[in-house]
Design a protein around this nucleic acid. Sequence first.
RNA 1: CGGGGCGUAGCGCAGUCCGGUUAGCGCACCUGUUUUGGGAACAGGGGGUCGCAGGUUCGAAUCCUGCCGCCCCGACCA
Length: 488
Amino acid sequence: MAKEITARAVNYSQWYLDIVRKAGLADNSAVRGCMVIKPAGYAIWENMRDQLDRMFKESGHVNAYFPLFIPKSFLSKEADHVEGFAKECAVVTHHRLMNNPDGKGVVVDPDARLEEELVIRPTSETIIWNTYRDWINSYRDLPLLINQWANVVRWEMRTRPFLRTAEFLWQEGHTAHATKEEAISEAQTIHEIYARFAEDYMAMPVIKGSKTESERFAGAVETYTIEALMQDGKALQAGTSHFLGQNFARAFDVKYLTSENKEEYVWATSWGVSTRLVGGLIMTHSDDEGLVIPPRLAPVQVVIVPIPKPSDEIMSVAERIAERLKELGIRVRIDRDDKKRPGFKFAEYEMKGVPVRLGIGARDLKQNVVEVARRDTSGKESVLLDGIEQHVRSLLEEIQDNLFKKAMLFRQEHTSWVDDFDQFREIINDKGGYVYAHWDGTAETESKIKDLTKATIRCIPIDQEKESGRDMLTGAPSSGRVLFAKAY
RNA sequence: CGGGGCGUAGCGCAGUCCGGUUAGCGCACCUGUUUUGGGAACAGGGGGUCGCAGGUUCGAAUCCUGCCGCCCCGACCA
């Protein structure tokens, strides 16, 4: 196991790209930096989306949809916000093409220049807050708890499937509140939902915390984050929830009347997770055989492979099992392809990450058993046909649980507590992983450490223990440890 | 935008240095037969403007010039 991961770390990037390709999750597209999400990849995202959507709705949120285009002037109304996104905006300048006067192809019609350029949303705060101004008049209109499922575009210099693409799918929640306390509590509620989703569904342990000022969302007063640790020892920011204070309300003049008939600016939050989570899922669980998908998110949880050539008897047993598994709410597929050999199929389903595989052949039927193979441990066993459905159900739960424990163990083994800067640098470079260390709280020191080691402060942990110490670089006093790591 | 590398069949590559039959190999694909419990074997078959444009030459995937595209490493970032 350790050896495999070491080997993997040598060219982690290639390993990751291989899995994306071989498991059929995504392809490069004709447009640089954008990907085509294939059915197998999209199905994972859909499952994530369904669960998150349910969790948002259970906590009182509703869905809506706002335009893809943002007038350029909107973006610049909040100073920090525009500064944060200006460098990665795609801009629409014209609305018409015309035949090339030279006769070859089409060109942009110079007469069709837009009076005001439109930015393709890198995030929707501005256009949404411009709308909220019209929607909010009274404290009775609050809170406004809206989420949208959408695509956004950020013109990144370097991209990687799922982890960073020029266009990506996400959800973005944008809420408005009467009081500061209520807005902060909303941001924390979502932070909690993200953490629960990551751990309970993705089986991906996360550290909850808040960002330092320099890592905060552009325009936020406070950014809450969940940070996951990948198998190459780098951290992945998996979801953020922002308390925006009154910054956007002031920028877009969104006020409400209190019950005392006083005019006040509203308080805001925004929060989002994206298709990056699919990348996180891949990098958390997969091994050298390919993708490993936690059962709760697996599009196909159980695949039944008839062996070697499906006789009527084998097929009817397979169908009976499939039927009963479906009744238990399990997503099951029977492989009816009689052209490929079993060995080929086994390898292929492993590559695609299907959690449980049932093999049924004449040999098994004679003994009234089926072969049950689990993806997480590569274990195989013969299980009595009678009661197989319950066995599979509890096995799926066990796999979900085991994947989380495995990831948690990895994280524990790759977490260090360090007080000395030389040791810090050594651990960040050689071993990787999380390092808890004291920090003097200044942006200068944070930036110096980044320059010297490429490690950044991933977060100030929410459950940070009070512990007086000294900054490992400057020696200035600190009251608790923060979480450092190299990050994606 | 800096530093490396690469463009030859759907995918992965050899051939390029040192120009010379009809451009080759593996996987995938199609047909047939035998197979089928961990990536089947054999036989036959289809598929190529060798990234693009010029040039040198009797002759260019190969040499020269220009251009385009992609990948990796950094800076930027969810």
